[in-house]
């Protein structure tokens, strides 16, 4: 039997995300964003991280505000339901972070190239646009077959992908469902993978439904049991999106001082997911739980 990769969140982040790492954290745009893992990165005071992603709702803004980040390669950084990310804005405007501007398609292609072991992927997006001016990984090429203009997107192979899943075994064989964003490319492109999971289950449980596996477990470095680990983003099958949280965050993140207060409430005092859930409170958790269940039929993988 393979060795268990189960670690607590502190040890997983300590071991696999040194300062200076490049990481995908929040590859699913709005759902299943690994906020618990992001908050542990903040607590451990990591520096000079490069954040890579399409849209990671407010997680990138939090990591930037906490001083963990020196560069961002992303399509969109902000607060999905309210707009601007104020820490991101301050960081770019005062020069403390640099940005390579992507679109959702170019970042997908960058990671897909990484996943395929290729130097770049071609696409038809962004031709004539200014992404070319603020991203050194985007260049125009001529198609060798048709001669038409194409946008070549340089591959990205992140050091680490942090992905939140519904359930994993202790070896990193994991089920995820819902929309996938660029999570599958991110896993395949990254050197290491950390999974945070709502539930830890037996291997047999995973193997009974291999179509639902997000990435092969042999590539996973660490598995962390992190219930409510994606809050305030939604986790299909577990909890809904906590809109109030995002609205409150908008207010707190408007200036540096109130953002510090926000960190003191939601990040600094937390040692484990139990602490976080205590701060969240039973009433709020109840209000976010799934109330209208829709179970799928099982399928037969037999022979």
């Amino acid at each position: 039997m393979a060795e268990s990769k189960l670690l607590n969140l502190q040890d997983a982040i300590k071991r696999y995300i040194p300062s200076g790492s490049s990481l995908v954290i929040g590859a699913t745009l709005e759902t299943m964003i690994p906020f618990a893992a992001g908050h542990e990165i903040i607590r451990q005071g990591k520096k000079n991280l490069t954040l890579i992603g399409p849209i990671s709702d407010i997680l990138f803004d939090q990591l930037i505000g906490a001083g963990c980040v020196s560069s961002v390669k992303a399509a969109w950084v902000g607060n999905v339901i309210t707009g601007s990310g104020y820490n991101f804005r301050r960081g770019v405007e005062n020069g403390s972070i640099t940005v390579e501007d992507h679109s959702n398609l170019t970042i997908t292609m960058a990671l897909r190239a990484g996943a395929m072991g290729l130097p770049f992927m071609p696409t038809l997006t962004a031709l004539g646009g200014d992404l070319y001016k603020t991203n050194t990984g985007i260049k125009e090429i001529d198609c060798p077959f048709t001669g038409r203009k194409l946008t070549a997107v340089a591959s990205i192979n992140p050091d680490v992908a942090v992905i939140h899943v519904q359930r994993s075994d202790e070896h990193g064989n994991a089920h995820a469902w819902g929309n996938f964003g660029i999570a599958r490319e991110a896993c395949l492109a990254s050197e290491k993978i950390i999974l945070t999971a709502e539930e830890i289950v037996e291997t047999e449980f995973i193997k009974r439904d291999p179509n639902r596996v997000i990435t092969p477990g042999f590539r996973v470095s660490a598995v962390v049991h992190a219930p409510w680990g994606a809050h305030p983003s939604p986790a299909p099958g577990f909890y809904n999106r906590d809109h109030e949280f995002f609205l409150e965050y908008r207010e707190f993140s408007k200036n540096r001082e109130s953002f510090r207060n926000w960190l003191e409430t939601w990040v600094t005092p937390v040692r484990n997911s139990g602490d976080y859930r205590k701060i969240l409170g039973a009433g709020r958790m109840d209000s976010l739980k799934i109330k209208n269940h829709m179970l799928s039929e099982g399928v037969d993988y037999g022979y």
Binding site: P54, A75, W76, G78, H102, S103, N104, T125, G129, L131
Partner: peptide
């Protein structure tokens, strides 16, 4: 210069 969130999928 004010920094806004970026393209997302809009450019595509």
């Amino acid at each position: 210069v004010t920094r806004l969130p970026g393209s997302g999928g809009a450019c595509d």
